[in-house]
Design a protein around this nucleic acid. Structure first.
Length: 797
DNA sequence: GTAGGGTTAG
């Protein structure tokens, strides 16, 4: 009898000790395990209650396996043990086991806390719908939800896409349950309303208003309240309100300050971000990993290398005791700082010496190589990566596409899928850009269809890529369709659409769109002006182009680069305004480079301005002696003027310097005759092939009832001025020939990689008149629409 | 026994 009493006493002591350990902080868990060892060593066999508490201890010490062992040997584990085990399993990401324990618990045993644990489990494992379902089950079974239930459920709602209605339902349940004044519940409500407001799927400002109303009327606020409302406004891009609330906050809450700083960084307010950092420092608010990371990122985005380095030095001075993984995100931000400030090799150096690395670190270096165009290094770095996530693939795919490796980009996209990665919208954007590079409309269309299937069709980046892809594949109408149906547009979208119109010769429409963009309060950047200038030049809108160039420097404060000047010269040169072009040349704030001289030479070639053309060509020979384009332009210029001796001289120069160019020709229409000049080495059988094609073409035309009213005259330079055949380069002719076979009345699109210069330009004009149809021809990135003998790009040839 | 906020790579 007394023995039994003793046992009970000992059991009570052990139970008290364990309870003490559990109510303290996690550091006392090892002690609890020692107590367990003690029991076993002294032959005390713990039973029911104590074993149940030990399960909790082992769960919290992350020894779930042993906790599970105890759980299995207890005849009837109690609800507390079950709850803690569910919680441990879901924290470890093992929802299946958590569900098993949940399902194995009879309804009579269950209580609210038990349901709460499982709801949170779903929520932590990103299954908002399951959490909501369970919440409904629990209410159906008449369990009363409490504060914890509501905070978890509201947290789960944050994961669901279309949730506005459900939020209101839960809000109603909160009011009914009487927890409507509990700070934690109100915090969760504010949090979910604020998230709804920032979601693109839901209606906007009224939700933010609802959140603000809850915030204003709260009986008590805690640290989390402040952070939630401030981050809420930051996420909704209302930085001013967020800042106002922060300034009225007396608590020194670094989390809220960090959110504010990162908000500024994301919106590009670099100075404000740095100012906040200084203020934080002055006010003695704790600076942590998050603060440093955001501030360094601010410096990286603003190109403020010096400031970034100062922050780096400050961290090294003050955070000496920092553990390696403290500095992980800081180091990642530093890597980005260095490469964005043009110091790729230094960034690599930091990466090499980092004690711990994660995906962010690897991907940062990969982006560095890709962004500066060191594509070979990017490729080998990509191969070297120990693990790749979706971002690694995406960076590499779009890097390849943007550097002109369309085929490799598509290959990698397929490989990514084969390795089991579900491509995100950015990856699709990369693959679509690859199609744009290749001019592969069919493949681009397929990707577009898949994009819609996977529900990525509202994606900004994919939409932008589609606009460019369709434009480069000649279907500017499809670009416009994508542009019009995109739910959100950024300046890249506008730039892409303006460029699309410009490439197709719709200069006036491009300008109109640009004006619309300004009305939307979007700030045009240097790319916008490049596309607008291109559009003007392609459509011959000299006055307009000039105007936009001037407003870029004056009103918009964009400093024109060499590329802008090159487009201006191109614009003036095509219009034959050489004295103005010369004035621009004189006023250049730097030495003119290849792009500028090439634009000038192209203009001279059109208008036969020999003197200036030769000057430009000489500069180009100095800068890039091996560039074949210069020789072709120059010889075309001479050919246009009929200066055959000079053409021969250029050809000799090419031979002497070992410059090879595939056979080509030049066309000029003079007095109702199209003269075709073969200006470089054309082998005899090709001439024969051209001849055969032409005979067939003329036959076809006659069959259709057309009588060619223009004579084609071939000048074969090998046999000095011997007029023999009527023709052009075989490939171009084949295209023209192909047009004849198409049904009348259709718009004809030709996606061959043709270069349209004076030669085929006239041919296509002529053909469009003859066949009475629109002909669309791709020329590199540009498109020419030929209608009724005229071309959309104006009379420049 | 159960909940809720901030960072870095495109």
């Amino acid at each position: 009898m007394s023995n039994a009493l003793d046992v009970r006493k000992v059991a009570n002591r052990y139970a008290t000790l364990l309870q003490l350990c559990r109510s303290r902080n996690p550091t006392s868990y090892p002690l609890a395990q020692t107590i367990h060892a003690h029991m076993i060593a002294f032959g005390f066999r713990p039973r029911g209650h104590i074993l149940n508490r030990l399960i909790d201890i082992y769960c919290k010490s992350s020894n779930i396996t042993y906790a599970r062992h105890l759980f299995d040997v207890i005849p009837e584990p109690d609800i507390v043990a079950r709850t803690t085990l569910i919680s441990a399993y879901s924290a470890a990401g093992n929802l299946k086991l958590a569900r098993e324990v949940f399902g194995g618990t009879p309804l009579s045993m269950r209580d609210t806390v038990f349901y709460n644990a499982m709801i949170t489990g779903y929520s932590h494992n990103d299954d908002g719908h399951a959490a909501m379902e369970l919440f409904r089950d629990m209410r159906r079974e008449a369990f009363r939800p409490d504060n914890f239930t509501f905070t978890s459920v509201l947290g789960a709602l944050a994961l669901i896409a279309d949730r506005e209605k459900q939020c209101q339902q839960v809000h109603g349940a909160v009011l009914k349950s009487g927890t409507g004044f509990v700070t934690s519940v109100l915090n969760a409500l504010i949090s979910v309303y604020v998230k709804c407001a920032s979601s693109p799927l839901e209606s906007s400002s009224s939700l933010l208003g609802a959140a603000k109303k809850l915030f204003d009327e709260m009986p008590e606020r805690d640290e989390l309240t402040w952070t939630t409302i401030i981050t809420g406004y930051v996420r909704n891009d209302d930085l001013a309100t967020a800042r106002g609330i922060l300034d009225g906050m007396t608590e020194k809450l670094e989390v809220a300050w960090n959110a504010m700083i990162s908000g500024y960084v994301h919106r590009g307010f670099i100075q404000e971000a740095l100012e906040m950092f200084r203020k934080m420092h002055m006010m003695g608010i704790r600076l942590d990993e998050f603060t440093y990371t955001s501030v360094i990122s601010a410096c990286a985005n603003g190109g403020l290398f010096k400031h970034g380095k100062q922050v780096h030095a400050y961290i090294l001075r003050t955070e000496r005791k920092a553990e390696p993984d403290f500095s992980l995100s800081v180091n990642n931000a530093l890597v980005t700082l260095y490469w964005k400030c043009g110091k790729v090799d230094e960034a690599r150096e930091i990466f090499n010496t980092m004690p711990v690395r994660d995906f962010v670190s690897w991907n940062a270096i990969l982006s560095a190589y890709v962004n500066v165009g060191r594509i070979e290094e990017a490729k080998s770095f990509f191969k070297e990566m120990p693990e790749r996530n979706i971002l690694s693939w995406t960076v590499m795919i779009s890097g390849l596409a943007q550097n002109g490796f369309g085929e490799e980009g598509l290959k990698l996209f397929n490989q990514m899928r084969m390795e089991g990665f579900e491509p995100c919208d950015y990856a699709f954007a990369g693959a679509i850009t690859s199609c744009a590079v290749l001019g592969s409309l069919e493949h681009g269309r397929q990707l577009h269809a898949q994009l819609v299937q996977l529900g990525h069709d509202s994606s900004l980046s994919a939409g932008n890529a589609l606009i460019t892809m369709y434009a480069r594949c000649g279907i500017v109408e499809a670009s416009n369709c994508v542009f019009l149906t995109m739910p959100y547009l950024d300046s890249v979208s506008w730039n892409a659409m303006i460029a699309a119109l410009g490439q197709h010769g719709y200069g006036l429409q491009a300008i109109k769109l640009f004006e619309e963009m300004l009305k939307e309060d979007l700030v045009p950047d240097r790319i916008t002006f490049l596309t607008v200038l291109s559009a003007c030049s392609h459509a011959g809108l000299v006055k307009e182009g000039r105007h936009y160039f001037d407003s870029m420097c004056g009103f918009y404060g964009v400093t024109p680069g060499e590329d802008h000047y090159a487009r201006l010269i191109d614009l003036l040169g095509r219009a034959g305004k050489f004295s103005e072009a010369k004035d621009v040349l004189k006023s250049l704030p730097f030495e003119p480079g290849v792009a500028i001289w090439e634009a000038l030479l192209a203009g001279c070639r059109i208008h036969g301005n020999m003197e200036l053309g030769v000057q430009a060509a000489e500069k180009l020979f100095e800068l890039m002696p091996q560039h074949d384009g210069t020789y072709v332009l120059l010889s075309n210029m001479y050919a246009t003027a009929g200066r055959w001796n000079d053409v021969a001289k250029v050809r000799k120069l090419m031979r002497d310097r070992g410059i090879k160019k595939e056979p080509g020709c030049s066309w000029v229409e003079v007095e109702n005759k199209v003269h075709v000049f073969l200006v470089d080495d054309t082998v005899h059988h090709e001439v024969q092939a051209v001849y055969n094609h032409l005979e067939q073409l003329v036959l076809e035309m006659k069959k259709l009832g057309y009588i060619p009213d223009t004579k084609f005259v071939l000048h074969d330079m090998e046999n000095e001025h011997k007029e023999s055949v009527l023709s052009t380069h075989s490939e171009k002719l084949a295209v023209v020939f192909g047009l004849m076979k198409l049904p009348l009345g259709a718009t004809i699109r030709v996606f061959k990689n043709l270069r349209i210069c004076g030669d085929c330009h006239n041919a296509f004009k002529y053909m469009s008149k003859v066949v009475g149809r629109e002909i669309v021809v791709r020329d590199g990135k540009r498109f020419h629409h030929f209608r009724n003998g005229e071309c959309s790009c104006g009379n420049y040839w």
